[in-house]
Structures are given as structure tokens and as C-alpha cells.
Design a protein around this nucleic acid. Structure first.
Lengths: 128, 128
DNA sequence: TATAGTAGTTACATTAAAGTAAGTAGTAAC
DNA sequence: GTTACTACTTACTTTAATGTAACTACTATA
């Protein structure tokens, strides 16, 4: 057992033990899907109206065709994007469109983007 | 220029071009800090009242001392945790407490945890 | 006939992230 | 005097993630 000493934090817990365990396992599940270097960025590009392979690749400066291809497959099996092929067109056109379900990511993307922007300001402005 | 063809997505954009660019760069900044395998989990453990090295390590089944040590340093330089040493105690006690600023992560953690839990149910329940 | 655009795939190489195991230093209990 | 606890660090190894470059197949344009 922990003895409390003067000065030591007196555990004003943010999460209960059960909440802590639940959050740990749930965020693990989320990051298993979203946690790569490119996954969320691909999703943002698609939500931003870039629905075609080369368009996405141009938007996400630096991603290789190989990575983009595997990310798109992952997003598809996770029901976040839908792949539509228009074979009648020349050259063939393939479209990746955000699913209705992908709307569920908006809270995460918004929270991440806001925090990222604000944190950069905080860290950059010689601290304190 | 893109010609619209029957059936093709008619770009009901979620984000404008500028929003898209901003979100891409802001989430990149966020993930630079939070994007590791352990970072968010360490933060959840600390917010859950596990403030000491070995306690955190026990809570986060699988993390090595090396990783935990480097994660804690990263969180410290990013002003998310504060390191307090109680050298008078034997053996010496070191405490990692969440800063006031770390409250800013709550939206992200909540959004991730909720999405992760819900997504697991969605994917597990033989789809559709 | 060569070049460019569509959307990828493949084999191979490299880099970055993370794990392993042992060691450090001080005290205290057995 | 050996084991155990605290909180780590160090050197080395392995695994996972990502990158590179070339290639496929079809059509169109110069």
C-alpha cells in the first residue's frame, strides 16, 4: 500500500480504474485501425474531395503508390471508404468515396487537428 | 479538368481545400507527439491515477522500462506530465503527474475511445 | 513509334520503432 | 550476504513500417 507523503499528488483521478482499463483497450482498438503514419491523412484527403488514386497521392506529398494502395484497402475493409470502378471510361477511373460511416471519424479528426494546431503554438512560443 | 460522369461522386465535400490542407498539417503535428504505440496509453494510465514508474509499467501490460522511460520524457517536454522526485524517501519515489495542460487531451482520448469501442462492435458483428 | 495518362503490383532495401536482457545505485528486510 | 524494492540506463537485436524503383496493362495523343 502507498503511503501519502507531504507534497505527493493526492490522486484527483481523471478516470476510475474501470474507465482507465476501458479507455486503454478502446483506444488500442482505435489506433489499430487509425494509427499508421498515413491512415488518417488519407481519410482527410478523401473527405476533402480527393477521391482518385493519383489525386490523393498528389495531395499527400510523399506517400508512395504502394502505401496508398494498402491504406485504401485497409480503409475499405474497415467500411470507411467505398471503391467504385468506372470501367467504361478510358482510361479506367477508380473512385474512393467516403462512406456514411466515415462521418464517425469527424470527432477524432477535429479533436486531433485542433489539438495539433494549438499545441504547436504552445510549444513554439518559447514555452511556459 | 475532371469531367463528371453518371454515377460518379458529385463531391459533396466535407472539407474545403484550405480546411483539408490545414487539417492535414495540424493532425500531422498532433500525431508527431501522440502517434506512437504507447504515448496515449501512458497518458491514460497517468490520468487514471497511476503516477509512478513501476505502477504505470504494471498497468500497461507489455511496455518495457526503456519505452516507458522515453515516453515519459517525451510527455514531459511536451508539458503533459510533470516529474516530481521525492529524494528523501527510501527508496526514492518519483511521481509523474498530469499537468493542467494535459486536460486538453481529453477530447482526443474520449473521441478515440468511443470510436474504438463502437468500431470493434461494428466490425465484429459480421458486418453490413 | 514514343510518350503520357489511368491505377495499381512486385521484389527488394532501408529506416524507424520497439523489444530483450542485463546492469546501476542506494536502502532495507531476511 | 543474498534477495528485493525503487527507478531507471545501456548495448544490442529484432520486428514492423515504410520507401524505391521498376514493371504491368490498357488507351490516347503527338
Amino acid at each position: 500500500m502507498l503511503k501519502e507523503k507531504k507534497g505527493m499528488a493526492v490522486n484527483k483521478l481523471e478516470y476510475s480504474q474501470i474507465q482507465c482499463k476501458n479507455r486503454l483497450s478502446s483506444t488500442e482498438d482505435a489506433l489499430y485501425v487509425l494509427g499508421g503514419r498515413w491512415t488518417i491523412r488519407v481519410m482527410i484527403a478523401i473527405l476533402g474531395g480527393h477521391t482518385r488514386f493519383n489525386d490523393i497521392q498528389r495531395t499527400l506529398k510523399g506517400i508512395s503508390a504502394k502505401m496508398l494502395s494498402s491504406e485504401l484497402k485497409k480503409l475499405e475493409v474497415n467500411l470507411l471508404v467505398e471503391r467504385n470502378v468506372y470501367a467504361d471510361q478510358t482510361p479506367v477511373v477508380v473512385e474512393y468515396v467516403p462512406t456514411e460511416y466515415s462521418q464517425s471519424l469527424k470527432d477524432i479528426i477535429t479533436a486531433l487537428a485542433q489539438w495539433g494546431a494549438q499545441h504547436k503554438r504552445k510549444i513554439t512560443s518559447d514555452d511556459n
